[in-house]
Simulated scan of single mutants.
Amino acid sequence: MSVAEYFSSMEYGPAPEDDQAARAWLAQHEASFGHFIGGAWHAPAAGEHFVSHAPATGGRLAAIAQG
C-alpha cells in the first residue's frame, strides 16, 4: 500500500496531543501515586512525594512517591 493510500484511508480521531484521557486517568487516581509493586499501589516508606510538572505549561500534574 502506498503512502497516499494510507492517507486516503485514515479515519479522523482525537488529536494525539489531546490530553483529556490522560487528565481523566490522573483525576481518577487523585493525581497522587505511591509505588506500584506486585500489582498494587503502596505508600512510600518515608511518606515522601515529589511533584511532576507538565512540560508545556509548568502546571502540576501529580504527586509521585519518592523511591
Score class of each variant (00 low, 15 high):
S2E: 10
S2A: 13
V3W: 12
A4C: 04
A4D: 09
A4G: 10
E5K: 13
E5M: 06
E5R: 06
Y6T: 08
Y6S: 05
F7N: 07
F7A: 11
F7C: 12
F7I: 07
S8Q: 15
S9M: 11
M10W: 13
M10Y: 11
M10G: 00
E11G: 13
Y12G: 13
Y12L: 14
G13Q: 07
P14M: 11
A15T: 07
P16R: 11
E17F: 11
D18K: 06
D18T: 04
D18N: 10
Q20Y: 06
Q20L: 08
Q20E: 14
Q20D: 12
Q20T: 15
Q20R: 14
A21H: 03
A21M: 08
R23G: 00
A24I: 05
W25P: 01
W25V: 06
L26F: 04
L26C: 02
L26R: 06
L26G: 00
A27P: 01
A27L: 08
A27D: 15
Q28Y: 10
Q28D: 14
H29T: 04
E30C: 09
E30V: 05
E30F: 10
A31E: 02
A31G: 06
A31L: 04
S32T: 11
S32Q: 13
S32N: 14
S32W: 04
S32R: 15
F33A: 02
H35R: 15
H35F: 04
H35S: 09
F36C: 10
I37R: 12
I37W: 02
I37P: 03
G38D: 08
G39C: 03
A40S: 13
A40D: 08
W41N: 03
A43C: 04
A43P: 03
P44M: 06
P44E: 01
P44L: 01
P44W: 03
A45T: 13
A45R: 12
A45S: 12
A46L: 12
A46D: 15
G47F: 03
G47M: 08
E48W: 10
H49N: 00
F50C: 05
F50N: 01
F50Y: 15
V51A: 13
V51E: 13
V51Q: 11
V51C: 05
S52C: 08
P55F: 12
P55R: 12
A56P: 07
A56K: 14
T57Y: 07
T57D: 03
G58I: 01
G58S: 04
G58C: 08
G59C: 09
R60D: 15
R60L: 09
A62E: 03
A62L: 09
A63D: 14
I64K: 00
I64Q: 02
I64H: 01
I64D: 02
I64S: 03
A65N: 05
Q66D: 15
G67L: 11
G67Q: 09
G67V: 09
